[in-house]
Structure formats: structure tokens, C-alpha cells
Design a protein around this nucleic acid. Structure first.
Lengths: 206, 206, 206, 206
DNA sequence: ACGATCGGGACGCCCCGTTCTT
DNA sequence: AAGAACGGGGCGTCCCGATCGT
């Protein structure tokens, strides 16, 4: 409906706003982010912002929605790369870690939906159900260690993702450098506790 | 007029302030907590608060310091309950989870030192070094799975703790109920991936 | 596409705008009325509003102008129903009261010209001169009480109208219900003080 | 409890705030008055204002309360100057007119309680009941014109007061100069319509 | 012409952390 | 240790142009 050369001006402004707001929200949280800073970062005026988003909550919701959408897409892709259910869980976990590290909208969605329940957004709901399903399938196929409940494994995956989130939040330099290769290794270690056998190469990290 | 053996009035006020501030910080974060609310909760006037703490940062630092102190004590206790290095790591992890769930001052210290780097507080520094040491000892004693680096195992422990922190932050009811017994089970699952053998009862959860 | 005999679309939009703006101005005053509310009530977009009226003041002036025009017409009608000068004053007063109660554009004109002198509108100027003239005629015909100056009588009429305006402004229910028949009775009471004799039926209320 | 030399600093600031706020409210209405202007006029900072009054509504309520109090006192004085009930009504009316003209807090109370019903303030309630009582007494003493209901007379008094309020609101110079002596004369004219006889000097205007 | 979208600043109210006086 | 005052923003709203489609 817009001009054929690309997005209309409004759409461009809208997206710039969402993107920069996501970066700020991810970095400083909801309360710590001011309209003024977002506008400065996005290079738009406050009038433009309040035209597109009637309130701070509305902006945060938009950020969350796109973040959740992006997450759902990435998770779906990772899941469809095939393999056993357990391999799928591994791929999904890796995809989540990569997403959180690279796309600020995913990071923002995770943080906002956590620290502002009033937004009624649920980032974890975009991937946890899938993980649970795959783990139950793995149990049905006898691919889970006999002492491991699927729900416990889901909790462990959840903790690993939480660890990535935290690591992003507390990057003041010194401790726990997210060395490349580390996450893969971490996941393999954790998976050894979940699975029935000793797999040496369960993941095809990108 | 208060007995000289007990706390002076000033000390009592000081402690009430720290305690209530910790609860607020843990619940709403640094930015989301105002002096007014703290004073109301603690039942003291703002004049008293600014007498004891010259600034908001000073109050937060005091909260963090006591929280870190409490953590250090609890972790030391758990570590000295003996056993193999790996058992010690398990005990310490459980102790951390319990501490975060029960003492708001620990929770506040964790949150504040994470989201306000300017405070120069480091809650993780009160337990991570110990965990790292024990894991290196376990490796030296060949109690680690050959494919597991001590640092990876430390990262996993860190993630488990992060999972507990997150769970506390996002308690809006529905998802991931922290069922009693779950943490223990979770930890056993994770440990299976770390350790060289299949231990059935590595932890003495209280 | 609209018939050429009816109003053009532009004229219709214009009139809807004036009418709804009058209702809002009468109800909430100049400052209390926003473009957004007017547009919502009138069912037009803000673009249309700013096309027809270049500023808020311009819109208010248009409202005042039509309100004053309507007042002038109604007052003229009442005056030409004949009778003695004093009867004419009575008729005009009653007509003003009815107008204020029924037509929001008159009410808006009265309120706006009062509380926004910068608009340079003068609603009272649409009827006070006529009342003054009639009162002077009544004095010349010895129909005024000897102790009553025409100007004092004009002030009294002005006060009665002010009473009606106030009553409309403060309709929060309880006090001073504008019972039907009351205004007529009120006017008769006041007129007894103005006139030379005791007239029993000076007004032909509609 | 304050220093014996006079009001404490807080009380002084409080009063200056109320007084200047009253002037602004009377002049520009609730919506048209900003905190910034009040502070500038009163010579205090916004911090001081928000310390004494937690919201704009709270400030307006304080203004109304003192205005109503002042009105009640003045009206009570005028009423107790004695005379027949009708003379008392005359005195009260004159006192109200003088009050509105001289004290901005009374003017502000009248305006605010009218145009901001949400404040739950009722300025008219501070004098109308007394007027009604006196008029009913006058009727019982046969001092009212047989065709005049007490309630109609109350409405007339209300209209006269409304006329004064309006006159104060629309002082843009030209029309209806509040000539000295006029109010007294006006009241005599109106009273002729109310009373049973022709009194020549019913009021002792100050 | 007519109208709608989009964007621009300017305050307004409120709240907050802090300091100064008592 | 309490009361009072200070000044800086934050969010939200508002009244408007400038820029497009029809």
C-alpha cells in the first residue's frame, strides 16, 4: 500500500523507534529508559514518538511483540533442522543463546516481560512449550536418563537461558567472559546429565 | 533508656532501614524504589534515613554489603559440611538457592550488584571463587567427567543460580512453579553431566 | 456527488465541527477542551479540523460568532412580539434564559467571550444594548419606579442572565433545581421592583 | 508551638502559597493556572509547593476551604448586625458582594467550586442556607410580598451574587462599570420586588 | 480543493533524591 | 533526627505545521 520503492516514511520511523527502544530497554531496563534518550538515539523527536506510541507501555509492548515474534521464528527454524527430539532441544537452546546475544529486541523482550508483568507479555512462552514437548517426546522414546523428569530438564534449559540473560546484563568486564565455544561446551555438559547415553556431538552449532 | 546490652536506638533504626530497603530493592529494583516507600515500610522519617545514609547509592551499598556478608557466611558453612569437592559444590549451590529464596537481603545484593554496576558491588564474587576452587580440585582428583572443563562446570553452576534469581524476579504466578524438591532434582541432573560417575545421592539438602 | 442543492461536504463538516466544538466549549471551557475530543465527538479527523480552522482561537471565534448571531436573532424575535417596553424586556430576558438552556452554541458564546477576552468577542453586546434602550424608553414613558435608574435595571437583568449561566455551569445535581416555572416567577418578582405598578402578568412565557 | 515571634517559616510559606494560588485561580481558572506561575508569583520553588500540597487538586481544595471559611465568617458577621430578617438578607448580600470584590480567596472558592465539581467543594453552601432561613422567617412574619415564594427570592439573591461573580470575571474594561453605589441601589431595586412594603433604606452599606 | 497522515516542540503536573535549617 | 525547601527531569498532552494522497 505504501510506495513501491520501499517502506513509507511512517513505517521507517516506526521501526527505527522500536529498534532503538529495544536497545535501550535491554541495556537499562524499563524504568531506566527515558523517552528523551530513545529519541536521541533514534534521531526522531518526541512528537514523532508519541504519535506512533501513545504511552511508554505501548512502546514496550510493541518491542516485546516483535521480540517474541523474532524468537518464535528463530526457535521454529532451529527446531525444524531435524534430528532426534533431544538434538532439537540442543539446537533450540543454542539458537536462543545466539539470539539473545545478537538481537537486542529479543533481549529486550526477555527483560521487559520479566520485570514488567503489567505488560502482560510472556517471552518464555514463545519457546518453553516447544522445549517441553520435545522433552516429553524424548522421554517416550527412552532417550532421557531414567532418573530425569522431562520437567526437570525443562527447568535446566530454562536455567541455561537465564544464565545467558544474566551474562548479558552484567557485562562489566571482568568475570565470566563469554568465550566463543563456551556455550556449546556448556550445553554438552548439561546434556550429558539429561540424556540416556554419552553423546559426543549432539549439536550442530552454526 | 534501652538497655546498654542491646542495640542502641540508632543501630536498631539502621538495621530496620537496611532490612526494609533490601525488601524493596529486591522487589522493585533500584530505580523502582523510592526513599518515600522505604521510609513508609520501615516506619521512620526521611530525615532519619538521610542521617544514616548520605545518598541512595550509600544505602544500596550498605544493603549489598550485608547481603554479600550473609552469603559469604552461608556459603562457608555449606562448604565446611565436608565431603568430596563435588559434594561441596552441590551443597553450596543448594545453600545459595535457599538463601535467595528466603533472605531478601541476599536477593537484593544479587539484583543490585547486577543492575547497578556503578555501585561497584560484586555479589557473585562472594561464592564463585570458592566454587571454581572446588571444581579444580575435583578435576585434579579425576572426579570430573573427562570432557568437562572446570570453567564450564562453573558456568553451569552460575546458570543454575541465575535460574533461581530469574524465578524470583518473575513470580507472576503461572509458569514454572518452584515445586519443593525440584531444585534438588535439578541439581542432580546437572551434576550427572559434570561428574565422572553416577552418584545417586550427592547432596544433603536441608 | 452530493446533491448541489444540499450543503457541500466541506460545509457539512464545517458545521458539525462548530456544533460539537460548541458543546465541548460550553461544557469544559476553552482550556479544558482539546482538539482530540472535539474530533472524536464530531467524527472527523484532526486533519479536517486544522484544514477548516487554522487555530484553536479561530475555531472558538467561529463558535462565538454563530452563537452571537443566534442570540441576536432570538432576541430580535422576542423584542418584536410587541407590548410595552417593559414587557419587551421581560420577553427578551425569558428568551435569553431559554436560549442558554437549549442551544449549546449560545452557551459557548457566553462562556468563551467571558473567559477568553483575547478572542475579542462580546456576547452580551448582542442583547444588552437593546435592553438598555427599552429601559430608557420605559423611563421616558414613566413606567419605571421613580427610584429606579434604567442602568440599575439593566444591571439587574444582567444578573438574572448571569444566574442562568451559573446554573448551567454548576449542574452537579443537588442545589437550586431549575424547576419549570421558576424563571418566570423569578422575573415577575424582580420586575415588581423595577416597574411603577403591580403588574400581575407581564410576561408571555412560551 | 511555633516560634513566639510569629508564624513559623512553614506556615508563612503555606499561606503565601494559598494566597497567590487563590489570586491565580480567581483570575485564570483551574486549568488556566500552572504551578510554575503560582510559584513565580509567590516567590517559592516548585519543590516547596509540592512539599506542602501533594497535588494541584489538594492546593485547590486548600484554597477553597480557606475561602469558604472566610465567607462563612463575613456572612455570619453581617447577619448578626441585626434588624429584620429581610434587612439581614440585604446585609448578607452586600457583604458577599464586597467579599468577592476584595478577597481573592473568596472569589477563587466561588469559581473553583463551580467549575471543578470533582473537588467536592461547595462555596454557595456557606451562605445560601442562611439566606433561605432568613427568607422563610420573613415570610412567616408577613414581610414578604404575597406573590413571592421564599425560594424564588433565594434564587434572586443567588442571581445577584452570580452577577457580581460574572462582573469580576469579565473585566475587560468597557461594559458595566461597577460604579460605586450601584450595588446598593441594585439591591434596593430587587428588594422592592421581594418585600411587602416600600422601604427606602433597608441596608446599612458600609 | 479537500483531507488525512505524520511529525515537531513546548509545557504541565508530578515525583524524586538531596541539602539546609532547627 | 525531623521538617522544610530545592531543582531536575519524566511522562504525557497539546496545538500545530509540513507532507503527502485523492
Amino acid at each position: 500500500m505504501a510506495g513501491q520503492t520501499g517502506q513509507s516514511r511512517a513505517t521507517r520511523t516506526h521501526d527505527r523507534l522500536v529498534e532503538n527502544a529495544a536497545a535501550q530497554f535491554a541495556l537499562r531496563g524499563y524504568d531506566g529508559t527515558s523517552f528523551a534518550r530513545i529519541c536521541e538515539a533514534a534521531g526522531v523527536t518526541m512528537g514523532a514518538l508519541t504519535f506512533h506510541f501513545s504511552s511508554k507501555a505501548a512502546l514496550a509492548q510493541a518491542v516485546c511483540t516483535t521480540g517474541i515474534e523474532a524468537t518464535r521464528a528463530a526457535v521454529g527454524d532451529a527446531d525444524q533442522r531435524g534430528g532426534t527430539p533431544l538434538q532439537s532441544v540442543g539446537n533450540v537452546t543454542q539458537a536462543l543463546a545466539a539470539l539473545l546475544r545478537e538481537q537486542s529486541v529479543a533481549q529486550a523482550a526477555a527483560r521487559l516481560s520479566r520485570e514488567q508483568p503489567s505488560l502482560q507479555m510472556d517471552w518464555r512462552g514463545s519457546w518453553l512449550p516447544l522445549v517441553r514437548t520435545r522433552l516429553r517426546q524424548a522421554e517416550a522414546l527412552k532417550q532421557l536418563h531414567p532418573a530425569t523428569q522431562p520437567e526437570s530438564a525443562a527447568l535446566l534449559v530454562n536455567s541455561l537461558v537465564a544464565g545467558v540473560e544474566m551474562g548479558l546484563l552484567s557485562e562489566h568486564g571482568d568475570a565470566l567472559p563469554p568465550a566463543p565455544g563456551r556455550p556449546v561446551e556448556l550445553w554438552q555438559t548439561a546434556l550429558r546429565g539429561i540424556g540416556a547415553f554419552q553423546h559426543e556431538d549432539l549439536t550442530h552449532a552454526r
